[in-house]
């Protein structure tokens, strides 16, 4: 279980990165959220065989990482943690789609392999951008920004509490798993039935805790709205950031830059 524990501690580090003070950190969360959103839509909307056209998009996370002074190695490790999902999603493509698309010398590349590569590139770009967003804005900043952008209150509040209690939930789950481990020997005691009861217990504890937290919030005058001392101000720099990057994404969506550059040299 040490692995899971470390993963959670690491998540805290992502949040701490957001306390830094760089031009990117100082931008209004809304500018970063909307720019990232435009970015995601642009990346995802490309055709399924697109690979070369996606590559220039890497400039967005790359520039932000450099400007915000983020530790690249750490972000790459975070990417790798979720990588198995992306690898699974497209894993069947090479088998299903065997139409030859291009050939390099004696090797013929099928459509399945190209679309698989496309999925992996998109994964790196989108998750990378999301990580950079959280690392430069903080989870709270993101929630606050979403709220000011008109996200329903319930959603913003849920996101915020989800993040806060992720750690507590993980602790409680770890306790249960340890307690099971101490009283099960070898395979015995780790079967599906025990697992079911374990999850059920966790759910009950969660409900209890939710009730207590709600009570504590009511005691301090909670009426459903999270007020904040932070005032968001959308300045010139925010507009420049938002419009500049968005314009670039639109251009990248419409023009395949690598092919264009390639054509210049042919």
């Amino acid at each position: 279980m040490a692995g899971a524990e470390r993963a959670f501690l690491d998540l805290g580090r992502l949040d701490r990165l957001a306390y830094a003070d760089t031009p990117v950190h100082r931008l209004d969360p809304r500018a970063k959220i909307v720019a990232t959103l435009v970015y995601l839509v642009a990346v995802v909307s490309h055709g399924k065989y697109e690979v070369s056209g996606l590559l220039p998009y890497a400039v967005f996370p790359a520039v932000l990482i450099a400007q915000a002074d983020l530790p690249l190695g750490y972000l790459v490790r975070k990417l790798l943690v979720v990588a198995p999902f992306a690898m699974l999603v497209g894993a069947a493509n090479p088998w299903l789609d065997r139409v030859p698309l291009l050939s390099v010398g004696p090797i013929t590349v099928t459509g399945g392999w190209v679309s698989y590569a496309s999925i992996l590139v998109r994964f790196v770009l989108t998750i990378g951008a999301a990580l950079v967003l959280v690392a430069t804005t903080g989870f709270y900043g993101v929630c606050l920004g979403l709220r000011r952008l008109g996200t329903p209150r319930v959603m913003a509040v849920q996101l915020l509490l989800l993040y806060r209690y992720l750690f507590v939930l993980a602790d409680e789950a770890l306790c249960l798993v340890r307690a099971r481990g101490l009283r099960s020997f070898g395979r015995r005691g780790t079967g599906v039935r025990v697992y079911g009861s374990l999850v059920g217990h966790l759910l009950l504890r969660t409900l209890d805790r939710a009730r207590r937290i709600h009570t504590a919030m009511l005691c301090r005058g909670f009426t459903g709205e999270f007020h904040s001392l932070r005032t968001l101000r959308f300045r010139g720099a925010d507009w420049a950031f938002l419009l500049g990057w968005s314009a670039l994404f639109v251009v990248l969506r419409l023009v395949n830059v690598p092919r264009l550059v390639g054509a210049l040299f042919v």
Binding site: F139, R209, T215
Partner: peptide
């Protein structure tokens, strides 16, 4: 009111 488990009471970031 100060609750028994501070984790219930501290919910902000």
């Amino acid at each position: 009111m100060v609750f028994q488990d501070p984790d219930d009471q501290l919910f902000m970031p």
